[in-house]
Design a protein around this nucleic acid. Sequence first.
DNA 1: GGAACGATTGAT
DNA 2: TCAATCGTTCCT
Length: 177
Amino acid sequence: MIVETEAYLPHDAASHAFRGETQRNRVMFRRGGYLYVYFTYGMHHCANVVTGKAGAGEAVLIRAAEPVEGIEIMIKNRHTSGQMGRSTRPRMHSRQPFAAPERNLTNGPARLCEAFGLTRKQDGEDLTGKNIFIGKGKKIHRSSLGRSTRIGIRLGKKKRWRFFLKGNPWVSRKPHG
DNA sequence: GGAACGATTGAT
DNA sequence: TCAATCGTTCCT
């Protein structure tokens, strides 16, 4: 269940599409309904849903999700692909209580991709098909929808285009602005 | 060809 | 707060 997203709109300086179409971001310029996955920091992937009309260059970053099914697979994916560090594993000699193991599975855009096994191989996947898709959600009350500035960007800091489910434990971090 | 950087994460 | 790590972009 998706619990946190960020919008990247046309003419948005923070967007990969801002400087026009390139080989990396070409999927962003298709019509809405495709998956855009990019590779960053030399080790992470992030997944987006393309949302605009053809040529617009618009997408929504999926920043976090609450695991509903397939948790064992997610744990396996997180442990077998590269970046999984010691800190997320239970530590024998730690006196600190550690979070439930599924808590760090999908509470961030790169962790989510690792858990779901999304890489550049899935870039351009048709989300209206049967392989990868987003199911119908449940209705939420307006009051449980949070909004803030986006995270980790240099430009476009003032745009409050991050949306999340208030109080959900898988939201990647506290709202900033 | 080469430098600079990044929609992050995990360790210190 | 800082390093990891490499594809992409942009400049020469």
